[in-house]
Design a protein around this nucleic acid. Structure first.
Length: 499
RNA sequence: GCGGGAGUAGCUCAAUUGGUAGAGCGACAGCCUUCCAAGCUGUAGGUUGCGGGUUCGAGACCCGUCUCCCGCUCCA
């Protein structure tokens, strides 16, 4: 963000437009469109060398904040494939298998079967009972045969109009299957349909008792998980904000029924503090309270960040009640209860969920970091300077070791320093091109520190450290380099502020 | 899904009415250099997104398609 040039931030021109961030992400090895040589695949992206480092750091920060700062939260890594009954219990199978149709004039979307049923009811009211029954019969046959084109023809044939626009200008009928499916089993007849999980939460719920027993946890306790989830989004856009394959970081916190309101508030605060720790200004966050709640929730909020395309959800906190465990208990006929020695009774725990999109968090970090500034070039002229203001603990590369020139024994000394650091943090060594160009390269990928090895280094064993944002340098002894850097780039120091 | 816009080297862009696909930057190699994309020399990099069509000839014109961006719509 060009914070020192606010006048350029017109309301319609976000300070860092999404386009710039996307271009930067691709050009400097953060995010590429998937299978780009074949024109890509809509809403699927790959993380490049710096992207994967940044994303791993974000995941580490979340994971450690969850599992290390809270001694009652343990981890889990459940499989992507799950027994299909899981999705029956969770409600995913039933709520997302509808034939939908859009009216092109009103841009309204309807369930095709509902439209036809309404028409049948209308016919019946008009006394055409036989016709109405025929209509329903034909619809059911078509739906059974999965003949969606036939369903549309039926709508046209019966002159069913959009209640909004009154026209029959309909799109095709499409089956909205939120979940991706595939086959298990080698022979088609024997194979069964299974789904790629549309959320990671169910892996936690079905393992609730396993984890509770083996980790010997008492309610209240939590299970944290990071993993891929898949949703066949109809419209997937805005770069990595909404992807068909994405990564969730979820924590399900199991509590005694009746205590959900206080735990909900508690986790809301904890999660907000976590976000603010990384230095993003508070005013760029907004809490969105849900009015329309999902089938499983009794309270829900989104933590929204001001992306270049508006305030959008980064993390959701939901009070899921005992919905999931109860449903699993019903369908599996296995008790999902916990005996609480404190109150001497068994119950199905309530759940508070915190669910954050790793990819959205990544995008938020990148949007926030992208900075255009003015600097001074080698000739003393003003020039545009672009750099990524990423928190040092998250930066893909922590430091670059750079010999001032490629001679006089400086490369040898610099390599020696590089070797002494590389086990402690991600560092790079670079000797090609002028020092200024090498600084700029590091700025562009957000490296917080550049260590220059110059002739003085050979004399008194000191180096200069250049700080990315200010471009200022300080000279310190090589012997203090490792500890100085670690203090500034380590995740532990950020976590410490959260304790 | 609807509407609008875009696609030429890694990036930014050029290419007369339809007539030999180019430049700058970047990358890489070498030289030179004591600190913010410096200089010199050289090298690599393109079926002009893809597929058809019109034409003697298409980067340009026509059709289709893919991808991306913006707005609407959708998002248990």
């Amino acid at each position: 963000m060009a914070k020192n040039k606010p006048k350029e931030a017109a309301p319609h021109e976000p300070e860092s437009s999404l386009k710039q961030v996307i271009a930067h992400a691709k050009e400097y090895g953060f995010v590429y469109p998937s299978s780009e040589i074949y024109d890509g695949l809509q809403a699927v992206y790959d993380y490049g060398p710096y992207g994967v480092e940044l994303k791993n750091n974000l995941k580490q920060f979340w994971w450690q904040a969850m599992t290390r700062l809270n001694d009652n939260i343990v981890g889990l890594d459940a499989a992507i494939f799950m027994q299909p009954q899981t999705w029956k219990a969770s409600g995913h199978v039933d709520s997302f298998n509808d034939p939908m149709i859009d009216n092109k004039d009103s841009n309204k979307r309807y369930r095709a079967d509902t439209l036809i049923e309404d028409k049948a009811a209308q016919l019946e009211a008009e006394g055409e009972i036989e016709n109405a029954q025929l209509l329903l019969k034909r619809m059911n046959e078509l739906l059974e045969a999965e003949d969606l084109a036939g369903v549309r023809d039926l709508i046209i044939e019966y002159d069913i109009v959009c209640p909004e626009s009154g026209t029959t200008n309909w799109t095709e009928v499409r089956q909205f299957n939120l979940m991706f499916s595939t086959q298990v089993g080698s022979v088609a007849e024997d194979s069964s349909k299974i789904y790629l999980r549309p959320e990671t939460a169910q892996g936690i719920f079905v393992n609730f008792l396993n984890v509770q027993k083996t980790a010997r946890k008492k309610v209240p306790f939590g299970i944290a998980q990071i993993g891929k989830a898949f949703r066949n989004e109809i419209v997937a856009r805005q770069f990595i904000f909404r992807m068909r394959e994405f990564e969730q970081m979820e924590m399900q916190f199991f509590i005694r029924p009746g205590t959900q309101a206080e735990w909900f508030d508690r986790w809301k605060q904890v999660r907000m503090r976590w976000h603010e720790t990384l230095g993003i200004p508070t005013e760029k966050f907004r809490i969105h309270e849900h009015e329309k709640l999902a089938h499983y929730a009794d309270a829900a909020i989104d933590i929204e960040y001001q992306f270049p395309f508006g305030f959008k959800e980064v993390e959701g906190i939901h009070s899921r009640t005992d919905f999931d465990l109860t449903e699993h208990q019903k369908l599996s006929k296995k008790k999902q209860q916990y005996y609480d020695p404190d109150v001497s009774e068994s119950y199905v725990p309530y759940v508070i969920e915190t669910s954050i999109g790793a990819d959205r968090l990544f995008l938020m970090t990148l949007c926030e970091a992208y900075t255009e500034d003015t600097g001074v070039d080698a000739k003393g002229n003003e020039k545009k300077r672009v750099y990524l203001k990423i928190h040092p603990a998250l930066a893909p590369v922590k430091a670059a070791v750079l010999p001032l020139v490629k001679k006089d024994g400086l490369p040898e000394k610099a390599k020696e320093i590089y070797e002494s650091l590389k086990l402690d943090m991600k560092v790079v060594y670079e000797e090609s091109a002028a020092i200024g160009k090498r600084y700029t390269r590091q700025d562009l990928i957000g490296t917080p520190y550049c260590i220059a090895v110059d002739h003085q280094t050979l004399e008194d064993d000191t180096v200069t450290i250049r700080e990315r944002d200010s471009t200022e340098q300080e000279r310190i002894p090589v012997s203090e380099l490792r500890s100085t850097l670690l203090e500034r780039v380590s995740l532990q120091n950020v976590l410490r502020t959260l304790v």
